[in-house]
């Protein structure tokens, strides 16, 4: 179980919140238990990360823009059951961030060098994949990753959580 936090941090790179990454970790451990009910959960690290990567690719991709997905999903539920929404509030991790914070974040992005800012906007804010961002900007995927990496460094240093 000592790997648990590392796995959580690995998965959280692609989820909306630590809470939803925690759900994935939970899911992962349940899967491992299901694989072999007798085995304890000290699965070899490689297998843990193989399964975690598959989760990231299969599952997180489909939920990445999850506010949109969630709206669709609520609609599906309504269509299928003809009932009202069960949860009368949006899930808490989707509660809109405060105006103050939005302003801080916006200013931080606006201060990035132009190419870096563009890559960050397309990839992070508009939800394009690295490959799609590369295509939109007419640069290599490697270059997009470098822009994103530098953007994260700038933003972290500026916002200093």
């Amino acid at each position: 179980m000592e790997k648990r936090e590392n796995l959580l941090l690995f998965l959280a790179a692609r989820t909306r919140s630590l809470e939803s990454a925690e759900d994935l970790v939970q899911d992962l451990y349940l899967k491992i238990v299901a694989l072999d009910a007798g085995a304890d959960v000290r699965a070899p690290t490689a297998m843990l990360y193989r399964m975690a990567s598959n989760l990231l690719i299969d599952q997180v991709r489909s939920v990445q823009r999850s506010s949109r997905r969630s709206a669709e999903w609520r609609m599906d539920t309504r269509v299928i059951h003809g009932g009202e929404d069960v949860v009368d509030e949006p899930p808490a991790d989707e509660v809109v961030a405060g105006k103050q914070q939005v302003r801080l974040l916006t200013e931080a992005v606006a201060a990035l060098p132009p190419k870096m800012g563009q890559a960050f906007r397309l990839h992070k804010l508009e939800g394009l994949s690295q490959a799609q961002t590369a295509q939109a900007m007419g640069v290599s995927i490697k270059m997009v990753e470098q822009h994103i990496q530098a953007a994260i460094r700038h933003l972290t240093q500026r916002l200093r959580p």
Binding site: L9, A13, E94, A97, T106
Partner: peptide, 29 residues
């Protein structure tokens, strides 16, 4: 390393939660 990653992750996820609003603000600006 762990501490730095957690900081960066907090920033990254802060953008995730408010992605649409920040994108809209940038467009308006």
């Amino acid at each position: 390393n762990r501490a730095a990653y957690k900081k960066s992750l907090a920033v990254w996820q802060a953008f995730e939660v408010s992605a649409e609003q920040v994108a809209a603000e940038l467009a308006a600006a």
